[in-house]
Design a protein around this nucleic acid. Structure first.
Lengths: 114, 114
DNA sequence: GCAGGGAACCTTGCACCGCAAGGTAGCGAT
DNA sequence: ATCGCTACCTTGCGGTGCAAGGTTCCCTGC
């Protein structure tokens, strides 16, 4: 369909969501579902949990985050994630790539209206 | 590696490149290699020809572009692409998705510096 | 004329990422 | 005891860009 905005957004998130999670963790540590809610506030950024948990596993494997289990006052224990130094470096690299990239996209799209 | 900017850009292009091509065709029709050069001017947007030709086939299949062969003054004939009406609609949809998306990403990344 | 190089097109196999759907377990309240 | 919520995770799939390689055509230089 021509007006399939969801499909467009799904593709846009690729390669971006990962670093949005890092950016949120840079503010303060969180556990999985809390991240989902924080992402959901910026309503364009989040699709489903099925995205988030594999993503977090990847970040752990790459050494960009550390995780620690903590008991919850109500409900099952939670796994809290926090940024490592190399995670901070990766995030900085992304920011440096994102800025010129989004600027170029805006330029190309701007030509459309003329 | 932590500073693999190319890998980051490869992922960023996903779901964007397609519409950048549509945007360029909205300005004026082009053939394949010409599109490659026009994309290359915005230096962050283009990877390789191996991306472009499958992408153009997809756009044809979806009915977002039409193509016509024309003789070249020097060299083999060229296949020129131009936007269809439904291509224009798809591009407009993308623009409406891109604006809030990129705004949200900027917001999330802005929190990093604090 | 014919050999080389460049323009222009295309295909194949691959890797990555987000998503939908489904699955497990613990705790609290009715 | 059962229902429902929180919280975690896994499997299979589809879409997209990329690297490498291949084909055809034309023009130019020897």
């Amino acid at each position: 369909m021509a007006s399939d905005i969801d499909g467009v957004l799904t593709q846009l998130r690729k390669g971006v969501l990962e670093y949005c999670v890092l950016a949120l963790l840079a503010e303060h540590p969180s556990y999985g579902l809390e991240l989902a809610h924080r992402l959901g506030r910026h309503r364009v950024l989040f699709g489903s949990e099925g995205t988030l948990y594999p993503l977090l596993s990847r970040l752990r494997r790459q050494g960009w985050v550390d995780s620690t289990w903590r008991e919850s006052t109500a409900g099952p224990p939670r796994r809290y994630y926090e940024l490592t130094d190399s995670g901070r470096t990766a995030l900085a690299t992304f920011v440096q790539a994102w800025q010129p990239f989004s600027a170029d996209v805006r330029t190309v799209l701007a030509g459309v209206d003329r």
